[in-house]
């Protein structure tokens, strides 16, 4: 029996705008078990990023509950949520969000620093992960000196290098060409199958369904399960 990593029950989130109130997530339920590769797709503006932010604890829910490994976290403090992300959740952002003054190596090893890993350990893991993603030769360069696709792979590397229980990704291949997109998802799929790593990926590209073990469509604020 797989462990429940994340569970969302009756989660709703609204945003108050000057002219109207927008509710991108409405009574949403989701269960992510260990070893799942969950793909959530939907149109632009359907609330995919909002859902990801809620699951990562970056944003707060208006209704419903969120729990991580059975422990509710939707009411936790900012500090507790930050620690949770640091230790258990890897996040890959749509627009890379690399630190410009650090080299690619330093960007990738950053989560390991936060987790307190030693220098030798960090070097080993960063170089291994970078080699897997084909960016081993770029590590000494600053982000501004590599291409958009290479930056995206650095960001993915950063999320994968830590020993996270769950990795969340928001349009992680949005800036990659189809070949590289497939390469990245192949890798994630292999990690999921071989290492049992758990992923929740959000995308607008339904062609990536083939890599997932569970597929959901986000429509009208709720998830509708589909066949992978």
């Amino acid at each position: 029996m797989s462990t429940m990593i994340i569970e969302a029950r009756g989660v709703s989130k609204s945003y108050v705008c000057p002219s109207e109130t927008v509710t991108p997530i409405r009574g949403l339920d989701l269960q992510v078990l260990q070893g799942d590769f969950v793909l959530i797709y939907g149109q632009s503006g359907s609330g995919k990023t909002t859902l990801l932010n809620l699951l990562a604890g970056i944003d707060s829910v208006d209704e419903g509950l969120l729990s991580f490994e059975g422990e509710r976290y939707d009411r936790k403090s900012d500090l507790q949520l930050t620690r949770m992300r640091r230790d258990h959740l890897g996040v890959i952002f749509q627009s890379f969000e690399l630190v410009s003054v650090m080299s690619c190596f330093e960007n990738i090893e950053y989560p390991l620093i936060l987790q307190g890993a030693g220098r030798t350990e960090r070097k080993k893991r960063v170089e291994a992960m970078a080699a897997l993603l084909g960016i081993g030769n770029l590590l000494r360069r600053k982000p501004e000196l590599v291409s958009g696709g290479q930056r995206q792979r650095v960001a993915i590397c950063r999320a994968l290098v830590g020993d996270y229980r769950l990795i969340l990704g928001d349009e992680i291949t949005g800036n990659l060409d189809p070949d590289n997109s497939d390469l990245v998802y192949d890798l994630l799929g292999a990690m999921n199958r071989n290492q049992g790593r758990t992923f929740v990926m959000v995308t607008h590209n339904r062609d990536l369904k083939k890599y997932a073990t569970k597929v959901y469509r986000l429509k009208n604020g709720a998830l509708v399960e589909e066949q992978p």
Partner: peptide
């Protein structure tokens, strides 16, 4: 702003 937000998302406390 964004960079600092990213760092917070990755796990840096306030």
């Amino acid at each position: 702003f964004r960079e600092l937000g990213t760092l917070r998302a990755i796990g840096n406390t306030r």
